[in-house]
């Protein structure tokens, strides 16, 4: 009973906040609604028993990806009047995309009614290991059977990292003196200071 109630709570909140993402005028509000939507999707994941995926959704999407979205949206100078001025110009393209999406949606619902797709026969590899959590079972499959895909994911991450650096990094020379901590630590009193005992009335020659 509670499970059903929780499901409807999360499901309604996911749909409602997802709707708010496209309806709210302020892009920052959109991102915050998106975060709420992710969060409730994580709740749905817990309900189907995928606890690791649920927390992964929170850690990666809410904790990392949405932070980037928020950074981008907060710091872009969005001129709303200019955006609205472009509305008529881009209207035909928008309609075209909307029609394509609608067709896909209708086809998708039609395909769903036609019956389930056979994407592959379960081989029994992914059966939960008794006495262990589903994070253990996932690990046992991912790093043995699917290690090629896993390494490919690593390569994609590497490419993403290099791409981001190439796009955003600008070579700039330091304007101030750059701190070299190694050099500072290596300094010792013997070579950094000189002790002098000048006679009375005589100056010090450096």
């Amino acid at each position: 009973m509670i499970q059903t109630l929780a499901f409807y709570l999360f499901a309604v909140l996911v749909t409602a906040s997802a709707t708010m993402v496209i309806l709210s005028r302020n892009p920052v509000h959109s991102v915050l609604w998106l975060i709420l939507s992710f969060f409730n999707a994580a709740g749905l994941m817990v309900l189907v028993g995928a606890e690791f995926i649920a927390l992964l959704l929170v850690i990666v999407y809410v904790g990392a990806v949405a932070v980037l979205f928020l950074f981008v949206v907060m710091m872009l100078d969005i001129d709303f009047s200019e955006l609205r001025a472009g509305f008529m110009k881009n209207f035909p393209i928008g309609v075209a995309i909307a029609v394509v999406l609608l067709t896909e949606l209708v086809l998708g619902i039609g395909a769903y009614r036609a019956g389930a797709l056979q994407l592959g026969a379960p081989t029994g590899d992914a059966v939960p290991i008794p006495g262990r959590g589903n994070i253990d079972s996932l690990g046992a499959v991912l790093y043995t059977d699917y290690l090629f895909l896993f390494e490919a994911a690593g390569i994609i991450l590497l490419v993403a990292m290099v791409g981001a650096i190439v796009l955003t990094h600008r070579e700039q020379k330091a304007t101030r003196g750059h701190q070299n901590i190694g050099k500072q630590v290596r300094r010792n009193p013997d070579e950094a200071t000189v002790m002098k005992q000048p006679e009375v009335g005589a100056g010090v020659e450096l």
Binding site: E51, F52, L55, V58, I59, V62, G63, G133, N134, I135
Partner: peptide
Amino acid sequence: INIGLLYVLA
């Protein structure tokens, strides 16, 4: 929960 540490991190 099984993944308490991940929960704290999340």
